[in-house]
């Protein structure tokens, strides 16, 4: 048996399939009188009763005027909302306990008449926090913060957008599903760096190299082409001594492996967090390292791509990277 929400979710998937860009139309727009709309109709019926009982044509006329406004608002709200055109920006992965900023670009049509007006409420479907966006005064893109609670793949929830423009009598809304794949990395927990030369003996304490003080300044040498620019001794350059590169002691230290120790399941998450911290630190220092998670092995390398691959492997552990690529 499917519960109500699942049935509704499936129906939504059929009605508004996922895409990266949406132009709203009758298929994706829902519209219904708002609470205030109901109150407004109550006012109309009050005026009608009063007008009928007092046989007062002016009151009845006022009532019909308000009813016509109500009818017109159905169309105005809909037309205004259907002018919306939105697109998902470039998303980044995030860490547990952090939140991912989801950028959404709203249309900026050349024609003023083609632009929607009024306040919009945006938020994630079934999430409590909605932010208010004033379509007459905003700058692209609009960021929605998506909290990351657990490590692994994160499906972007449907984005709910609703508008009460122009008089708040009707609520016009939609739930949009954007095509994107997000990963949540483990939360980094600070720990000493421990690199192992796993090719020989991962467990051997004798071979373990303490890399504390890796950023100790060692010496100055003439700059060689290809060395990172942030190692250039700018002070000396400014003094007119030419391009001189700072040498750090850890630059010369051996490359090693970050290894996931075999422990009981409850410690796995903590270890992954530790590894995550080390991956971040090592990459910051542009040090070569490899990652061995047992199921996945990433050969030593440096650079952003390498860091991303390592973090992704940590995120989806115990699955292997190959499964990501399939997605």
């Amino acid at each position: 048996m499917l519960n109500r929400h699942e049935v509704f979710g499936r129906w939504l998937d059929k009605r508004i399939p996922s895409a990266n860009r949406f132009e709203l139309d009758h298929k994706s727009i829902f519209i219904f009188p708002s609470k205030f709309g109901a109150l407004f109709l109550f006012l109309c019926s009050g005026l009608f009763l009063l007008g009928t009982n007092y046989q007062n044509n002016l009151m009845i006329m006022l009532c019909y005027f308000l009813v016509s406004l109500f009818l017109l608002n159905l169309f105005i709200t809909y037309v205004n909302f259907s002018k919306l055109d939105l697109q998902l920006g470039k998303t980044h992965n995030g860490f547990v306990n952090d939140s991912i900023q989801i950028p959404i670009w709203f249309n900026q049509s050349e024609h003023k008449k083609q632009r929607p007006n009024g306040d919009l409420q945006i938020g994630f479907y079934k999430h409590a926090n909605f932010l208010t966006l004033d379509l007459n005064d905003f700058s692209n893109p609009v960021y929605l913060a998506l909290p990351c609670e657990a490590r692994g793949r994160l499906e972007l929830p449907r984005v709910t957008i609703c508008s009460y423009y122009p008089l708040g009598l009707f609520r016009c809304w939609t739930h949009l599903k954007f095509k994107t794949s997000l990963l949540v990395y483990p939360a980094p927990i600070s720990t000493p760096i421990s690199l192992q030369n796993s090719s020989e003996n991962p467990k051997g304490h004798g071979q373990r190299e303490q890399t504390m003080g890796y950023d100790d300044f060692d010496s100055l040498t003439p700059y060689k082409k290809g060395e990172p620019l942030n190692h250039v001794a700018w002070k000396q350059l400014a003094k007119g001594q030419g391009m001189i590169s700072k040498q750090f002691s850890t630059q010369q230290s051996n490359t090693g492996w970050l290894v996931l120790q075999k422990t009981s399941p409850e410690f796995i998450e903590k270890q992954l967090s530790h590894l995550c911290f080390q991956v971040m630190e090592l990459s910051k220092n542009e040090q070569r390292f490899g990652l061995n998670l047992g199921t996945t092995q990433i050969l030593p390398a440096t650079g952003n791509e390498h860091q991303k691959a390592c973090l992704e492997a940590l995120a989806i552990y115990p699955q292997s990277l190959a499964t990501i690529k399939e997605v």
Binding site: M61, V67, Y164
Partner: peptide, 30 residues
């Protein structure tokens, strides 16, 4: 209240148009 940043002039214009559109309908209903 629902479109605070729209200029007052533009809003008044929109409201007047809305009111003028509602009048014939109200009259017919009446």
């Amino acid at each position: 209240h629902y479109s605070p940043s729209k200029s007052l002039l533009q809003t008044s214009k929109d409201i007047s148009i809305m009111g003028l559109q509602a009048l014939p309908i109200a009259l017919l209903l009446f």
